[in-house]
């Protein structure tokens, strides 16, 4: 007996929702950042699952690019965190409201 596609999708949905909740309840910017990585990975899982079940390589190729973008995002995002910490002495989400201006 094989594992049906729905199982993979359900797992993916669960991981995505956890990631969303994590983004909303955590205040450490780096943890928020990790939650976003989790959400990206849940989507990757969906793509790989569809790719395998449909026999289409496009899904896996897209995952490859998502990984590359995630790497780029990680580099720039963490650099921003460092710059922010240097200026504000904090990485607390709740203390950063400079978007108001």
């Amino acid at each position: 007996m094989a594992v049906p596609l729905t199982y993979y999708l359900a797992l993916s949905a669960a991981l995505f929702a956890i990631g969303v909740i994590g983004v909303l309840i955590r205040r450490n910017v780096i943890v928020v950042f990790m939650c976003i990585e989790l959400m990206l990975n849940s989507v990757n899982l969906t793509l790989v699952a569809f790719s395998a079940f449909l026999g289409d390589i496009a899904g896996q190729a897209l995952v490859f690019f998502v990984m590359a973008v995630a790497a780029a995002e990680a580099a720039v995002g963490l650099a921003i965190v460092i710059a922010l910490y240097r200026n504000k002495q904090t990485v607390n989400f709740d203390d950063i409201n400079i978007l108001k201006w």
Binding site: V20, L24, F93, D94, I96, N97, L99
Partner: peptide, 13 residues
């Protein structure tokens, strides 16, 4: 417009 990114994400969600 609170300026807190978290609020914006909440509204978005």
């Amino acid at each position: 417009h609170t300026g807190f990114t978290a609020t914006y994400i909440l509204v978005f969600l």
